[in-house]
Design a binder for these strands. Sequence first.
RNA 1: GGGCCUGUAGCUCAAUUGGUUAGAGCAGAGCGCUCAUAACGCUUUGGUUGGGGGUUCGAGUCCCUCCGGGCCUACCA
Length: 572
Amino acid sequence: MARILITSAIPYINGIKHLGNLIGSQLPADLYARYQRGRGNEVMFLCATDEHGTPAELAAAKAGKPVAEYCAEMHGVQADIANRFGLSFDHFGRSSSDQNKALTQHFAGKLDEAGLIREVSEKQVYSNADGRFLPDRYIEGTCPNCGYDRARGDQCENCTKQLDPTDLIEPRSAISGSTDLEVRETKHLYLRQSAMKDQLDSWIDSKTDWPILTTSIAKKWLHDGDGLQDRGITRDLDWGVPVMKGDQDWPGMEGKVFYVWFDAPIEYIACAREWADATGKPDAEWERWWRTDKGADDVRYVQFMGKDNVPFHTLSFPATILGSGEPWKMVDHLKSFNYLNYDGGQFSTSQGRGVFMDQALEILPADYWRWWLLSHAPESSDSEFTWENFQQSVNKDLADVLGNFVSRITKFCRSKFGEAVPQGGAFGEREKALIDDLTRRIRAYEGHMEAMEVRKSAQELRAIWVAGNEYLQAAAPWSTFKEDPDQAAAQVRMGLNLIRLYAVLSAPFIPATSARMLSAMNTLDTSWPQDVQDAISALPAGHDFAVPDVLFAKITDEQREDWQTRFAGTRD
RNA sequence: GGGCCUGUAGCUCAAUUGGUUAGAGCAGAGCGCUCAUAACGCUUUGGUUGGGGGUUCGAGUCCCUCCGGGCCUACCA
C-alpha cells in the first residue's frame, strides 16, 4: 500500500473563493486524494486557510472586527463551504495556529544557525494616518512616466512601467488616502536564497517529469539577471507569527512578524500536527508523513496549485526546508494549473466578478460543478467558463449519459423483474466483449489519474459510462425479454452491476452522486475493479435494490438565462 | 522593456515528443431503437493546424518573422 501526502495551495482568508480558485488547486487535489483512497492507498490530504498579511488586516478592519476574530469566523465559513463541495481534507487547518507559530519560529531558528539569515536595514514608507508601514502596492500616486494618477507603488497599471514608491508624484495611502507619509528606517530579516542557488538548481534539474509551466518559472527566477535574490521574510505588522529564534527572543526584531509567504507553506507541515493534536494522536503519527528519518521516506508528496504560486513552492519553501538542514519531506510532484476565465474576462475576487463557491451551491449541487470544472480543468492553458458550455456539458454528460443510464436499467428491471437483481441466463460473447472493453478503458483511466491528467481522466470516465449505453442498445433486453426472459435477466443483471461499478469509478469526480448510486444499489461494496469480471458480479441474483430518484435534473434554458443575468454584474 | 506559455473543426479539447490520410466530445445532418430524464445507439458534414518564410526524405510538432491571447517580472497573496 502506497502512502501519499497531498497538499492543496492554501486559500487566503479574506473572503469566499470563486470557481477559478477552486479548480486551481483544491478540487483537483481532492480528485487525486479520493482516487488514491479508492485504490486502497494511505492518503494524508491537507489544506488550510492562509490568514496572515496586510489584506487580512484590512478586511477585518472593513468588517469592523478584530483580525483574530475575523479570521476565525472566515475560517469557519470556508471550512463549511469546502465541506459542502465534498473536499475531503483529512484536516483543514489554519496558518495562524499555535502549531504553525512554533514550527515557523523553529525553521527561522534553524536557518539562522545555518547562517542563512541576514539582517538588512532598509527604508520603507510609513503612513502616520494608518499607523502602519505600507506595502508598495498600497501606495498610490501619479506615474512619473505616463502621468496616470492611480499608479501603484510597485508598478503603473496604465503604462506597465515598474516603479519604486518614492518615484510616485504626490504619493498617498491606498488605504486611507492620506498623504501624511514618511520614509522610515526599519530592520528586517532576509533569507539568503542566493546561497542556496546551486542546491535549488540541481534539485529542480532532477525533476524531469514536472510540467514545463512549473520548471520554466523556477528556472527563470534562478537564472534571471544576477540569479536568485535573497528575500525579506519579516514585516512590520501586528498580525502574524512573531519573529523568534525557535523559542528564544530575536534581539532587535521585537514587534515584528514573519512575512506571510514564509509561514504559509510551513503550515502544510504544521497542519499535519494540528490534525494529530485534534485527533489525540502522538507526534509520531504526523511525523511519519513529514520526517524522512521518522517513516516518511516512502511517502510520495504531491502539491496542487495555481501557476501564480509556483515560485514559492519551487524556490522559497524548498529553500526553507533545505536550509534547515533537517530531514523534512520534499515535494515529489508539483501539479500546477492555469487560470479559469469567466465569460470573456477574468474571475476576480476583488471585483466580485464570476461565480463564487457559496453562490454555486445555492443554485446547483456540488457534483454538477465538480464535473464541469474537472472535465474542463485549465491544464495546458487558460480555459473559460460560459453558461452555455456548462449547461450543455452537464446536461449531456451527467443527465443523459450517466443519469439516464441508471434510470433506464433500474426502471426496466422494476417493471419486468421487480426491485431485485434478476436470476437466470448467462453471460455470453457480448458480455465478454464489454468486459474486455471496460478493462481496457479502466486501465487507461487509472493511468490518467495516476499521471494527474484531469481532463483525460474525465474523458475516459465518460467513455466508460457510454459503454453501458452501447451495451444496452446492442443487447436490447426489452426485445430479448419477449422470447428469452432468462437472457434478458442476465443482461439486466449486467446493467445493474454496471451501476455499482460506475459509482466506484466515478466517486472521485462526483462523490455525492456516487453515494446515491451505491445506496440505490443497496451495497457498501466500493472495492476498486482490479478484475472487471469479478466487479460485474458483485451484486448477485436476488439482491434487492431501489430505483433512485433522478440523479441529475437538466438545466433548462430558463435557468441558464436567469443565472446568466444574475451573475453578469459583480458581487456587492 | 525582459522571460515564459499559448493559437488546431462553429464550441471545448487530443495528437505516443519529427513519422502513414490531424483525431474525440458537443453543436449540425441522416438513420435506427422504444427500456429510459423527448433520453440511447449507429452513420455523417465540418480543418491550407493564426499569416508568411525556412530546415528536413518527412513539420501541428524544430528555426526565423509578423499578428492575436495569457502569465510572471521578486513588497498582493
